[in-house]
Design a protein around this nucleic acid. Structure first.
Length: 956
DNA sequence: GAGGTCACG
DNA sequence: GACGTACGTGACCTCT
């Protein structure tokens, strides 16, 4: 079932040499020569277009030479010694190759001490050993040694000369060298290479070399046979220069076992996102390609993978190291030594108050090609906050603050000197939007939104908070799951940052950042930018070292601007409808209150679990009161339901009261207050690091827990509506977690049921109980969920209302009917205990520091979470991939009016013109159903259910 | 700020 | 013998 993988390895440096000589000397609008770059760009375009065509790439990477000194120089100091320097108008084009690759959002690999050829050889061997086909985009004769089929994995390696549009396979190699690929090295060793200064044997050229190897079968055989040859110049040369031939053999041999800087999976070729490519094409005046991009019929559903992929490729070494073996994984703080940076000096920061200063900082950032940025605002809500200032950092000890909206402490205070906000933003805009400069932020989604409201589309970006999450999810203790800046600075930089409350105070005495004096604001804001810059250096390296690049680059980072866009779009909510519900609920609540107080024999706070418990169990004397460790009676739903079942009417009334109070305070009241006065819509904020498993979370307000399960709660969903002429579309993955469990645990009967489109809980009931009734199906459903959550006999017994023994018998039966499950649980726990973390299908890690806790409850809790995390996390990865691809896919289908508004874990909600529904439905369905591809081919189909209507309630 | 409760997947 | 029993969230209320 596994679809065939086909890796294309582009020999970037070699390509540009050839393109330079074959293409006209174009220059870009700034007069920089770009002819070869143009050729290179056009070639990448062509390759990307061929994604998934027969013989086209599924995976692709560009390999570049780095530096000039390699291990071959240690073998032979004259190696490549007499290479002429590249032509003057080719030199500036080398760095542009990297830019072009980055514009295409393709991985770019280079490694100190290795030539591109060695990396190509190592990747080609690794891929073909795994059964992947490989095409090397090059015509370098050295690489022809690699052509052929891997004896290990059966993958086939060929080459592609894109300039001649010619495939080079075994026949072509034989035609060129007269010998098969495995003997090409011997021929090369005899004939030598003038350009690379491989000596070979003087007087032997290609013809003779080929003849010798053909006759004798190999270099050593030819050298050994020399004494028996008839006396000739050739015989003497072979004998005299045998050592030179042997040295040459070593020089032309390719290193095939180099450490792979990035794992093969990272080369998964997605369709190319239109940015930053568009900006790159514009910068260099590649108008014909710009036109092609605009018409874009050729671009595939994009897998947005923006930006500096090569950032992670500087460091060699293992990718999937298997983690720290043994017991307790080391805390993150002790993992790497701090770079040799000076201590953070807040007094050295610049406060930028003139245009001249600002221009100097912009130039500095452009030269550095990477700038950390932080915006200061007047509030926490990015959709309402006013911009107060921007800080930048371009390196350790290099940071500034640009105040833009400070006004003294009160209306009489003097307004400090500042560059007018719009002028400063106009100057910053090209930098912030330049595809040549990576913008780094801590929770940059916030800054993206604030700046988007000023017409600035910040890109490309990196986010240190998201990077931290990809590295250390589950390791933190508090706050933003341990990914807040203050905590990161302390943990990774051993630095204590100035806290917001130190600058603005707290509670009643808290002031807006706009009121903070510039000197204090500069210290605080510039420090945040510098800390972000330093964290980025550390995390970029760690992502590469610890195998986090794949999930960060391919899933989480592309999601940042997407989620920012969803937040900005918001969703329309009918205030009137909510107000009506609030009034109705209020009346019913006060009626219930009166009755409850009457039955209780006096007034008390129903909303106080403490008072309620005392009323029920002490005053009214109901049995079954259980006190928890706090010494308080439990009065939760299950307790009240039990009492109600025993005829306690007051319990029923309290349950009703609770439901209505909850709906009113949390939804019908709160949502009215959440409507943004400017947009008339509700804008949630999603946290990208909110859930340890990789799920998003939603807050202020939480739009991921809007009622649906009860009829009365459902009415709240009716108030979420589409704009006039539009409808809401809800697209749900059906049973995705069970499907993933069936795939990951390889559970035959479940897989089969999903393939046949059966009712999965009914099928489970059939397997477990031998018959499908309403009752057995419901119990089977409970058990299915119990499995996903990490089962215990007591928990299941509680849910099913059976004894623990009966529950255990059912678990045993489940394992017997679905044997893969037990193995999955066992293997998952083994691996988490050994490595300290679990992993999703897409490589997302979640750490479980308490998996070996001496406290049984703590340990068992970790075990259950560890069983669930790969499933829940893989589900999160899949919908995130779908989200990242959605907008470009819709745009390509001419559906740019379709807006993605909400994500609720396995559901996406869109707003679209009514007339677009028919066209959008199949696009949305396809993007979601195929979101695992091509990285992972699931053994179960992903079902997507789609509904539309005037409201969210109606769309379900 | 903690604990209890309950809305969602 | 007690522990505390399903995974992942966020918001609101009361009480200290």
């Amino acid at each position: 079932m596994e679809s065939r993988k086909h890796l294309y390895l582009v020999d970037g440096s070699a390509y540009i040499f050839r393109a330079y000589h074959r293409l006209p000397p174009l220059t870009n609008p700034e007069g920089v020569p770009v002819g070869a770059v143009y050729g290179y760009t056009a070639m990448l375009w062509k390759l990307a277009e061929d994604l998934h065509k027969a013989d086209g790439p599924t995976h692709l990477a560009v390999i570049l030479d780095k530096g000039s000194i390699t291990f071959r120089n240690a073998l032979y100091d004259q190696y490549k010694a007499n290479r002429p320097p590249p032509p003057e108008d080719l030199r500036p084009q080398f760095p542009l190759i990297r830019d072009a690759t980055r514009a295409f959002s393709l991985p770019c690999i280079e490694e100190e001490g290795l030539e591109a050829d060695d990396l190509i050889a190592s990747y080609a061997r690794a891929a073909s050993a795994r059964g992947w086909d490989v095409t090397i985009v090059s015509s370098d004769k050295d690489l022809m040694q690699l052509v052929g089929t891997s004896a290990v994995g059966g993958g086939h390696v060929d080459m592609l000369d894109t300039m001649k549009n010619q495939r080079i396979d075994i026949p072509e190699v034989v035609e060129k060298f007269g010998v098969p690929p495995e003997q090409v090295g011997d021929v090369l060793a005899l004939m030598g290479d003038a350009v690379d200064n491989v000596p070979g044997i003087r007087g032997i050229g290609p013809k003779t070399a080929t003849k010798l190897i053909q006759e004798h079968g190999g270099l050593e055989q030819a050298l050994a046979a020399a004494p028996e040859m008839k006396k000739s110049k050739l015989r003497e040369s072979l004998i005299e220069q045998a050592d030179m031939a042997r040295l040459s053999r070593q020089l032309v041999a390719l290193k095939e076992d180099a450490a792979l800087p990035l794992p093969l999976e990272d080369f998964e070729l997605g369709p190319i996102p239109p940015e930053p490519l568009g900006a790159f094409l514009a910068t260099h005046g590649f108008t014909s390609l710009q036109r092609k991009l605009a018409s874009a019929a050729t671009l595939h559903i994009p897998e947005a993978l923006a930006g500096a992929v090569s950032a992670g490729a500087q460091h060699g070494g293992e990718q999937h190291s298997g983690g720290e073996s043994g017991s307790a994984p080391a805390p993150a703080s002790t993992r790497q030594p701090l770079p040799d940076w000076p201590a953070i000096d807040r007094e050295a920061y610049a406060c930028v108050q003139t245009m001249e200063d600002l221009q100097a900082w912009i130039a500095r950032a452009e030269a550095a090609r990477l700038v950390a940025i932080d915006t200061e605002t007047s509030a926490l809500d990015s959709m309402r906050a006013d911009l107060v200032g921007v800080s930048l950092s371009t390196g350790a000890g290099e940071a500034c603050y640009i105040p833009l909206g400070h006004h003294g402490l009160d209306m009489f205070a003097e307004v400090p000197l500042q560059i007018p906000r719009e002028e400063a933003l106009a100057a910053l805009k090209p930098l912030l939007e330049s595809d040549a400069v990576l913008k780094v932020g801590q929770n940059i989604k916030y800054d993206l939104t604030v700046l988007a409201r000023h017409g600035i589309a910040v890109a490309p970006i990196d986010d240190t908070m998201v990077m931290s999450f990809c590295l250390d999810a589950g390791r933190g203790e508090v706050g933003l799951g341990g990914h807040g800046m203050d905590e990161l600075a302390s943990r990774h930089l051993s630095h204590t940052t100035i806290l917001f409350k130190d600058v603005c105070g707290t509670g009643k005495k808290q002031v807006s950042f706009a009121q903070v004096p510039l000197a204090d604001a500069t210290r605080y804001a510039a420090e945040d930018a510098e800390v972000t810059w330093r964290l980025h250096q550390l995390f970029a390296q760690r992502l590469s070292d610890e195998g986090g690049t794949r999930i960060y680059q391919r899933v989480d980072r592309p999601l940042v601007p997407v989620v920012a866009g969803m937040e900005r779009a918001g969703i329309r909510v009918e205030r009137e409808q909510l107000a009506t519900l609030s009034t109705r609920f209020a009346a019913e609540i006060s009626r219930l209150e009166a009755v409850i107080h009457e039955k209780a024999g006096g007034p008390f706070l129903i909303g106080s679990p403490k008072q309620l418990g005392e009323v029920l169990f002490d005053k009214l004397g109901y049995k079954g009161g259980k006190k928890g460790k706090s010494g308080q009676y439990s009065t939760d739903q299950s307790v009240l339901e039990t009492l109600a079942g025993q005829g306690a009417e007051v319990a029923t009334l309290v349950l009703e009261w609770r439901q209505l109070s909850k709906l009113k305070s949390t939804y019908t009241d709160a949502l009215q207050a959440a409507i943004n006065p400017d947009t008339g819509r509700v804008h949630t904020s999603y946290s990208l690091v909110g859930a340890q498993t990789g799920r998003l979370s939603s807050n202020d307000p939480n739009l991921q827990n809007i009622p649906i399960r009860t009829e009365i709660g459902r009415q709240i969903r009716e108030a979420f509506v589409a704009a006039p002429g539009h409808v809401l579309l809800s697209a749900d993955y059906s049973q995705i977690e069970l499907r993933l469990a069936a795939h990951m645990a390889d559970v035959g009967p479940l897989r089969e049921a999903f393939e046949q489109g059966e009712d999965i809980h009914a099928r489970t009931a059939q397997e477990l109980f031998g018959e499908v009734t309403r009752d057995t199906r419901s119990r089977a459903k409970t058990i299915n969920f119990a499995i996903l959550y990490g089962i215990s006999r007591w928990g299941l017994a509680g849910r099913l209302g059976t004894s623990a023994d009966e529950a255990q018998a059912m678990i045993d039966r489940y394992f017997e009917r679905f044997p893969g499950i037990q193995r999955y649980i066992h293997d998952t726990l083994e691996s988490v205990r050994a490595r300290g973390y679990s992993e999703t299908l897409f490589g997302r890690k979640t750490w479980f520091p308490r998996i070996a806790s001496g406290t049984q409850a703590e340990r068992q809790g970790s075990e259950r979470a560890a069983i669930n995390a790969p499933i829940q996390g893989t589900c999160a990865d899949i919908i995130k991939r779908a989200m990242a691809r959605m907008e470009p896919a819709l745009a390509q289908a001419g559906l740019s009016r379709v807006k993605m508004l909400l994500q609720v874990h396995d559901e996406l909600v869109f707003e679209l013109p009514e007339e677009d529904v028919a066209a959008a439905t199949p696009v949305i369905r396809a993007v979601m159903a195929e979101a695992a591809q091509p990285a992972i081919t699931l053994s179960v189909p992903l079902g997507v259910e789609i509904g539309t209507g005037p409201s969210w309630g109606a769309a379900h």
